[in-house]
């Protein structure tokens, strides 16, 4: 099973940018999204992220992520409508101000979540970690923690699926239609997952140490991540985005 955040191979400019530049791009889209206050700007930033996804060939991932995010965004809209009490009433408990701040909150949620996922789908995690160590002087320990955490996501998903299947085959009603019942059934299953994951992390730590983890320095990486012209251009774009975010 493929994961939403798995790397999608490609040779687009987005793929070839320096991993640090990609992070900067995602960060500036996020900052611009938070700073800007107009519908046009929020929608434009969201569209920009999606268009970049289409360009890099990872749009399907973004859309499958949207499927999960949209219900959350709608929930947020409802909460905003319920809590924002000033402005003219529209229908039921909704007010004009509530609608405005609610829809903006929705757009911001989507605008903040998608760029980082976009970066992860066009960058190998090892490249990202190595580049951050080289350019941003982040200690390798933290970079390794980050890559390992990402790598464990599919491993644990698989483990969780195997456990759920085993429990279903025993007669636990995971196939129940009631989501709350399902959730309450899932809790006890977390015990085996926890036991295996503690064991796995310990084994990984041992394996990494046996391959010289403690000897690693900033200069260890075989690959180098120099900045190119396209990175400079992209950097300028980032600044422009943030400025636009402040103005609009």
């Amino acid at each position: 099973m493929l994961n939403v955040i798995d790397y999608v191979p490609g040779t687009t400019i987005l793929h070839r940018l320096n991993p640090v530049t990609k992070l900067a791009l995602a960060a500036s889209i996020i900052i611009a999204t938070i700073l800007s206050d107009g519908y046009a700007a929020l929608i434009a930033l969201l569209l920009l992220t999606l268009l970049l996804g289409v360009y890099a060939g990872t749009a399907t991932r973004l859309f499958s992520l949207l499927k999960v995010l949209v219900p959350i965004a709608v929930l947020m809209l409802v909460l905003q409508l319920a809590f924002v009490r000033h402005g003219d009433p529209v229908i039921l408990f909704a007010t004009t101000d509530g609608l405005v701040s609610g829809t903006k909150a929705c757009l911001r949620l989507l605008g903040v979540a998608l760029p980082l996922v976009l970066v992860l789908t066009v960058t190998k995690t090892t490249d990202l970690a190595n580049a951050c160590v080289e350019k941003l002087h982040i200690p390798y320990k933290y970079a390794f923690t980050f890559t390992t955490a990402l790598r464990f996501v599919p491993v644990f998903t698989q483990e969780m699926n195997a456990i759920m299947e085993a429990q279903t085959a025993r007669g636990v009603e995971f196939d129940s239609k009631n989501p709350f019942r399902k959730l309450s059934l899932m809790l006890p299953v977390c015990i085996p997952l926890l036991v295996t994951s503690v064991g796995k992390t310990d084994a990984t730590a041992l394996a990494a140490e046996q391959r010289g983890f403690y000897l690693r320095t900033r200069a260890s990486s075989y690959r180098r991540y120099p900045f190119a012209l396209r990175d400079a251009v992209c950097g300028a774009l980032c600044v422009a985005l943030i400025v636009a975010g402040i103005v609009l």
Binding site: T126, F144, R151, T204, A208, G212, F213, R216
Partner: peptide, 20 residues
């Protein structure tokens, strides 16, 4: 699975070589 430190075969081999 727990023994692996990278997501691509080449990087898995690189890890030890780089460290040592």
């Amino acid at each position: 699975d727990a023994q692996m430190v990278a997501s691509v075969v080449e990087d898995e081999l690189l890890f030890g070589l780089e460290n040592f």
